[in-house]
């Protein structure tokens, strides 16, 4: 019974947060932050143990699997665009993804967060893939989910500033940096620059995710 209640509670909070964002379209009101904030607050105020909440929560988390499969659809639709710009795009995304993982693990080491390194390593990519990567690195997928949110916040603020200061003028480069660096949040910001930026960001996000999950387990343990 409680299970269904928790599911309904999550859907309601999510739905209200989406409505709020429609009314006030400011980054800080993004449902990514507000729905998480409200859920945490509800659990704390109502003294709900996370383990109990998870009995219902996992039913929804399960949908991340078919959602990952769903990425095949934009990938298929954007395939011609991807093929046209294959070389610069793949060079950028491959390097960017490599830099993300290596710099994260090294920085974590320097700041004595070595134990968190496997959970931090996939922070740049889209949540379902980041969580799967975290699991295969023996990290903590829940912490990874939170790190992905922090990345989104940093990314949507830093991305446009980087574009402005480095005078990044091609649409392709703008899309690639937003999608590789800040996954879905970066992608939605990229659509504000234009249709091309948005499509390229989607491609970059998916490619970065695939690269991360395939290659991070091969070299993170040796860093």
């Amino acid at each position: 019974m409680a299970k269904i209640l928790f599911i309904l509670m999550t859907i309601l909070v999510y739905w209200l947060c989406k409505k709020l964002y429609k009314k006030y379209t400011i980054v800080i009101f993004s449902p990514l932050f507000t729905s998480l904030f409200v859920m945490v607050l509800l659990l704390l105020v109502l003294h709900i143990h996370y383990g109990n909440y998870w009995s219902g929560g996992k039913v929804m988390a399960w949908w991340l699997q078919p959602a990952t499969v769903a990425f095949a659809v934009p990938l298929y639709k954007l395939y011609p665009t991807m093929k046209r710009h294959a070389l610069p795009l793949s060079l950028g995304v491959v390097t960017g993804t490599g830099i993300s993982i290596v710099s994260t693990v090294l920085l974590a080491d320097i700041l004595h967060l070595t134990i968190l390194a496997p959970s931090l390593a996939p922070h740049s990519v889209t949540t379902p893939i980041a969580m799967l990567t975290s699991r295969s690195l023996h990290g903590n997928p829940t912490l990874t989910a939170v790190f992905v949110i922090i990345t989104a916040l940093v990314g949507v603020i830093a991305g446009p500033l980087i574009i402005q200061h480095l005078k990044i003028r091609t649409s392709l480069a703008r899309g690639a940096l937003l999608g590789t660096g800040a996954h879905a949040m970066g992608t939605s910001r990229a659509f504000e620059f234009g249709e091309t930026e948005g499509s390229i960001a989607s491609i970059s996000m998916i490619l970065a995710g695939i690269l991360t999950i395939l290659f991070a387990p091969l070299f993170v343990p040796y860093l």
């Binding site: 999550t10 859907i11 909070v13 999510y14 729905s35 998480l36 859920m39 945490v40 659990l43 996370y50 909440y53 998870w54 219902g56 929560g57 996992k58 929804m60 988390a61 399960w62 949908w63 991340l64 959602a67 949540t127 379902p128 969580m131 997928p141 829940t142 989910a145 939170v146 949110i149």
Partner: peptide, 8 residues
């Protein structure tokens, strides 16, 4: 929506 429960 699907990832809110994990992040919570």
């Amino acid at each position: 929506l699907f990832f809110v429960p994990s992040a919570t």
